[in-house]
């Protein structure tokens, strides 16, 4: 028996919206420790890793490890039938091929259940090595989304460079070029509005902007985003999910041949 109950159903909606553009079908892996998902986009350039720890749920029961294959667009559609304040419960039998989503209104005066067929998805898990990154930038998530959107009006790729001076986002296109520099800024009143740069070595990498724009669909999940880069590794863009875990996106760079 699997039973996961979340008082903030709206959180689950945000999680699905953050993934469904990048990944169509994925396995939700549930165990006693929580629920996780790892999937690559169809071109194998980006990878999304989700973790929702069991202690973040209001009720979490998972008698047996389960890997539940779902079409994320179908789940997202289904969750749109839940109110933002609804309590969402997922239920599945150990041997069944369906999952039930139950939505309860906050006053408990409306209860809906939607049953969805599970899919058999062959997916391979990748080992993500622990790494020390040359540069880690923490910044407001809305600012990061704004920068990616603004630069995409000019070009398709972005060069992200971290130096002592700050983090620079540069692009070039047919109509011209653009540079946006963000300096470390820890003097603001609220920590979620600050930009913090931890740099061991300067690093400069090139990425396709359309993937970064997909990642920014996670912006509603967190006020801040952390971007980690090393010259010989995919970048990591991480949004923390309050008290529960994270959604991490890995993106392979473009390199000069």
């Amino acid at each position: 028996m699997l039973e996961l109950r979340l008082l903030q159903g709206g959180l689950l909606k945000k999680v699905l919206e953050a993934m469904r553009e990048l990944v169509t079908d994925a396995n939700f892996d549930c165990s006693r420790s929580g629920c996780s998902l790892q999937a690559m986009d169809s071109s194998h350039v980006a990878l999304v890793a989700l973790l929702l720890r069991s202690d973040g749920f209001d009720h979490f029961r998972c008698d047996r490890n389960r890997s539940m294959g779902m079409n994320l667009n179908h789940v997202a559609k289904l969750l749109r039938c839940a109110g933002n304040d609804d309590i969402v419960t997922l239920k599945a039998d150990d041997d069944g091929d369906t999952v039930t989503f139950m939505f309860e209104s906050p006053k408990q005066d409306k209860i809906a259940d939607f049953e969805m067929k599970l899919m058999d998805i062959q997916s391979e898990h990748l080992g993500i090595p622990e790494a020390e990154y040359q540069a880690i930038v923490k910044m407001p998530s809305q600012e990061f989304a704004r920068i990616c959107r603004d630069l995409s009006t000019i070009g398709d790729t972005v060069v992200i460079s971290v130096t002592k001076e700050g983090v620079k986002f540069s692009t070039k296109g047919d109509i011209g070029s653009a540079n946006i520099v963000c300096r470390q800024n820890t003097t603001v009143d609220k920590p979620e509005e600050s930009t913090v740069i931890e740099m061991k070595d300067p690093v400069s990498l090139t990425f396709a902007l359309r993937y970064l724009i997909s990642f920014t669909k996670a912006t509603p999940l967190s006020n801040t985003v952390t971007v980690s880069m090393s010259s010989d590794l995919p970048m990591v863009v991480e949004y923390k999910i309050a008290d529960m875990g994270y959604i991490r996106y890995y993106l392979a760079p473009k390199i000069d041949e």
């Binding site: 071109s43 194998h44 350039v45 090139t206 890995y250 392979a252 390199i255 000069d256």
Partner: peptide, 14 residues
């Protein structure tokens, strides 16, 4: 020319 690398160039199948 700029080549797009893939995730599998960095992370291996488990």
């Amino acid at each position: 020319t700029c080549i797009q690398r893939r995730i599998l160039d960095y992370f291996s199948r488990r």
